[in-house]
Deep mutational scan, measured.
Amino acid sequence: WEITFERNGKRITVRTTDHRLLELFEKLWRNGADERELERLAEEINR
């Protein structure tokens, strides 16, 4: 799966075969987690 999240013109794409990681990322994104931390998390998930 691949999903791109966008907020205030900032886009972060997450790619993984584990839908649970996408759900976790989406919850953090929707709850306003720090964008720098989300970028780092996305990099780890995308590996």
Results as ranks from 00 to 15, higher is better:
Trp1Ala: 06
Trp1Thr: 06
Trp1Ile: 10
Trp1Pro: 05
Trp1Asn: 06
Trp1Gly: 06
Trp1Phe: 11
Trp1Leu: 09
Trp1Ser: 04
Trp1Lys: 06
Trp1Tyr: 12
Trp1His: 10
Glu2Arg: 02
Glu2Gly: 04
Glu2Tyr: 09
Glu2Thr: 06
Glu2Asp: 07
Glu2Gln: 08
Glu2Ser: 03
Glu2His: 05
Glu2Asn: 03
Glu2Phe: 10
Ile3Phe: 14
Ile3Cys: 09
Ile3Leu: 13
Ile3Lys: 14
Ile3Pro: 01
Ile3Ala: 10
Thr4Phe: 05
Thr4Gln: 06
Thr4Trp: 05
Thr4Val: 14
Thr4Leu: 05
Thr4Gly: 02
Thr4Glu: 05
Thr4Ser: 09
Phe5Gln: 00
Phe5Tyr: 13
Phe5Asp: 00
Phe5Trp: 06
Phe5Cys: 06
Phe5Gly: 00
Phe5Ile: 11
Phe5Thr: 01
Phe5His: 02
Phe5Lys: 02
Glu6Trp: 09
Glu6Asp: 04
Glu6Gly: 02
Glu6Ser: 08
Glu6Met: 11
Glu6Phe: 11
Glu6Leu: 09
Glu6Pro: 02
Glu6Lys: 03
Arg7Ile: 14
Arg7His: 07
Arg7Lys: 12
Arg7Phe: 14
Arg7Met: 12
Arg7Gln: 05
Arg7Gly: 04
Arg7Ser: 10
Arg7Trp: 11
Asn8Val: 02
Asn8Arg: 04
Asn8Gly: 09
Asn8Trp: 03
Asn8Thr: 04
Asn8Met: 06
Asn8Pro: 03
Asn8Phe: 04
Asn8Leu: 04
Asn8Ile: 02
Gly9Cys: 04
Gly9Thr: 02
Gly9Leu: 02
Gly9Asn: 07
Gly9Arg: 02
Gly9Asp: 04
Gly9Met: 03
Gly9Ala: 03
Gly9Pro: 00
Gly9Trp: 00
Lys10Phe: 15
Lys10Pro: 01
Lys10Ala: 07
Lys10Val: 14
Lys10His: 13
Lys10Arg: 13
Lys10Met: 15
Lys10Thr: 13
Lys10Trp: 14
Lys10Cys: 09
Lys10Asn: 08
Lys10Gly: 02
Lys10Glu: 04
Arg11Tyr: 15
Arg11Glu: 07
Arg11Val: 13
Arg11Asp: 03
Arg11Gly: 05
Arg11Phe: 15
Ile12Val: 06
Ile12Trp: 14
Ile12Cys: 03
Ile12Ser: 00
Ile12Ala: 01
Ile12Asn: 00
Ile12Gln: 01
Thr13Cys: 04
Thr13Ser: 06
Thr13Phe: 07
Thr13Lys: 07
Thr13Leu: 07
Thr13Arg: 06
Thr13Asp: 01
Thr13Gly: 01
Thr13His: 05
Thr13Trp: 03
Val14Arg: 00
Val14Cys: 03
Val14Ile: 15
Val14Trp: 02
Val14Leu: 15
Val14Thr: 00
Val14Tyr: 03
Val14Ala: 01
Val14Gly: 00
Val14His: 00
Arg15Ala: 06
Arg15Tyr: 12
Arg15Lys: 13
Arg15Val: 08
Arg15Phe: 10
Arg15Gly: 02
Arg15His: 06
Thr16Arg: 02
Thr16Gln: 01
Thr16Trp: 06
Thr16His: 10
Thr16Gly: 10
Thr16Ser: 11
Thr16Leu: 07
Thr16Cys: 03
Thr16Phe: 13
Thr16Ile: 09
Thr16Lys: 01
Thr16Ala: 10
Thr17Trp: 11
Thr17Asp: 11
Thr17Ala: 12
Thr17Cys: 11
Thr17Arg: 13
Thr17His: 13
Thr17Gln: 12
Thr17Leu: 11
Thr17Ile: 07
Asp18Asn: 13
Asp18His: 07
Asp18Ser: 11
Asp18Ile: 05
Asp18Met: 07
Asp18Val: 05
Asp18Ala: 06
Asp18Gly: 02
Asp18Trp: 04
Asp18Gln: 06
His19Tyr: 15
His19Val: 14
His19Met: 15
His19Gly: 09
His19Trp: 15
His19Pro: 13
His19Asn: 08
His19Gln: 14
Arg20Cys: 04
Arg20Val: 10
Arg20Asp: 09
Arg20Gln: 11
Arg20Glu: 10
Arg20Thr: 12
Arg20Ala: 13
Arg20Gly: 09
Arg20Pro: 04
Arg20Ile: 10
Arg20Trp: 09
Leu21Trp: 10
Leu21Asn: 03
Leu21Ile: 08
Leu21Val: 09
Leu21Ala: 11
Leu21Met: 13
Leu21Ser: 05
Leu21Lys: 09
Leu21His: 05
Leu21Thr: 04
Leu21Gly: 01
Leu22Trp: 09
Leu22Thr: 02
Leu22Asp: 00
Leu22Val: 10
Leu22Asn: 01
Leu22Met: 11
Leu22Ser: 02
Leu22Tyr: 09
Glu23Ala: 14
Glu23Tyr: 11
Glu23Leu: 14
Glu23Trp: 11
Glu23Val: 13
Glu23Thr: 12
Glu23Met: 15
Glu23Arg: 14
Glu23Gly: 06
Leu24Cys: 09
Leu24Thr: 08
Leu24Trp: 13
Leu24Ile: 11
Leu24His: 09
Leu24Gly: 02
Leu24Phe: 12
Leu24Asn: 05
Leu24Pro: 00
Leu24Gln: 11
Leu24Ser: 05
Leu24Tyr: 13
Leu24Arg: 08
Phe25Met: 04
Phe25Ser: 00
Phe25Lys: 00
Phe25Val: 02
Phe25Gly: 00
Phe25Asp: 00
Phe25Gln: 00
Phe25Glu: 00
Phe25His: 00
Phe25Arg: 00
Glu26Tyr: 15
Glu26Asp: 07
Glu26Trp: 15
Glu26Gln: 11
Glu26Ser: 08
Glu26Val: 14
Glu26Arg: 12
Glu26Thr: 12
Lys27Ser: 12
Lys27Cys: 13
Lys27Arg: 13
Lys27Met: 15
Lys27His: 12
Lys27Phe: 15
Lys27Leu: 14
Lys27Thr: 14
Lys27Asn: 12
Lys27Gln: 14
Lys27Asp: 08
Leu28Lys: 06
Leu28Tyr: 12
Leu28Val: 07
Leu28Cys: 07
Leu28Ile: 08
Leu28Trp: 12
Leu28His: 07
Leu28Ala: 13
Leu28Arg: 07
Leu28Phe: 12
Leu28Asp: 01
Trp29Lys: 02
Trp29Val: 04
Trp29Phe: 11
Trp29Pro: 00
Trp29Cys: 03
Trp29Asp: 01
Trp29Thr: 01
Trp29His: 02
Trp29Asn: 01
Trp29Ile: 06
Trp29Ala: 03
Trp29Arg: 02
Arg30Ala: 10
Arg30Gln: 08
Arg30Lys: 12
Arg30Ser: 09
Arg30Thr: 07
Arg30Glu: 07
Arg30Tyr: 10
Arg30Met: 09
Arg30Cys: 07
Arg30Asn: 12
Arg30Trp: 08
Asn31Leu: 09
Asn31Arg: 07
Asn31Thr: 11
Asn31Ala: 11
Asn31Tyr: 06
Asn31Trp: 06
Asn31Gly: 13
Asn31Asp: 12
Gly32Trp: 06
Gly32His: 10
Gly32Asn: 08
Gly32Met: 07
Gly32Ser: 04
Gly32Leu: 07
Gly32Phe: 08
Ala33Leu: 07
Ala33Gln: 05
Ala33Gly: 09
Ala33His: 09
Ala33Thr: 11
Ala33Asn: 04
Ala33Lys: 04
Ala33Trp: 08
Asp34Thr: 12
Asp34Ile: 15
Asp34Met: 15
Asp34Arg: 03
Asp34Phe: 15
Asp34Pro: 10
Asp34Glu: 08
Asp34Trp: 15
Asp34His: 08
Asp34Cys: 05
Asp34Lys: 03
Asp34Gly: 09
Asp34Ala: 09
Glu35Val: 14
Glu35Ala: 11
Glu35Met: 15
Glu35Gln: 10
Glu35Phe: 15
Glu35Pro: 09
Glu35Trp: 15
Glu35Asp: 14
Arg36Lys: 14
Arg36Glu: 14
Arg36Asn: 14
Arg36Tyr: 15
Arg36His: 15
Arg36Gln: 14
Glu37Ile: 14
Glu37Val: 14
Glu37Cys: 13
Glu37Arg: 06
Glu37Asp: 12
Glu37Thr: 14
Glu37Lys: 07
Glu37Ala: 11
Leu38Asn: 00
Leu38Ala: 01
Leu38Tyr: 03
Leu38Arg: 01
Leu38His: 00
Leu38Trp: 09
Leu38Ile: 06
Leu38Gln: 01
Leu38Thr: 01
Leu38Phe: 03
Glu39Thr: 11
Glu39Asp: 07
Glu39Met: 14
Glu39Trp: 10
Glu39Gln: 11
Arg40Ala: 13
Arg40His: 10
Arg40Asn: 12
Arg40Ile: 12
Arg40Cys: 10
Arg40Thr: 11
Arg40Asp: 09
Arg40Trp: 09
Arg40Pro: 02
Leu41Gly: 00
Leu41Asn: 01
Leu41Thr: 03
Leu41Tyr: 05
Leu41Ile: 09
Leu41Phe: 12
Leu41Glu: 02
Leu41Lys: 03
Leu41Cys: 06
Leu41Pro: 00
Leu41Ser: 01
Leu41Val: 10
Ala42Pro: 00
Ala42Phe: 07
Ala42Ile: 10
Ala42Asn: 02
Ala42Ser: 04
Ala42Gln: 03
Ala42His: 03
Ala42Trp: 07
Glu43His: 10
Glu43Cys: 08
Glu43Gly: 08
Glu43Asn: 11
Glu43Gln: 12
Glu43Leu: 08
Glu44Trp: 15
Glu44Val: 12
Glu44Ser: 11
Glu44Arg: 12
Glu44Pro: 01
Glu44Asp: 11
Glu44Gln: 11
Glu44Phe: 15
Glu44His: 13
Glu44Met: 14
Glu44Cys: 15
Glu44Gly: 04
Ile45Cys: 04
Ile45Tyr: 04
Ile45Asn: 01
Ile45Arg: 01
Ile45Thr: 02
Ile45Ala: 04
Ile45Gly: 02
Ile45Met: 08
Ile45Val: 04
Ile45Gln: 02
Ile45Asp: 01
Ile45Glu: 02
Ile45Pro: 01
Ile45Trp: 05
Ile45His: 02
Asn46Thr: 07
Asn46Val: 07
Asn46Pro: 01
Asn46Met: 09
Asn46Tyr: 06
Asn46Ile: 09
Asn46Trp: 08
Asn46Leu: 08
Asn46Glu: 07
Arg47His: 11
Arg47Trp: 08
Arg47Asp: 07
Arg47Lys: 14
Arg47Pro: 03
Arg47Phe: 09
Arg47Gln: 13
Arg47Glu: 08
Arg47Cys: 07
Arg47Met: 13
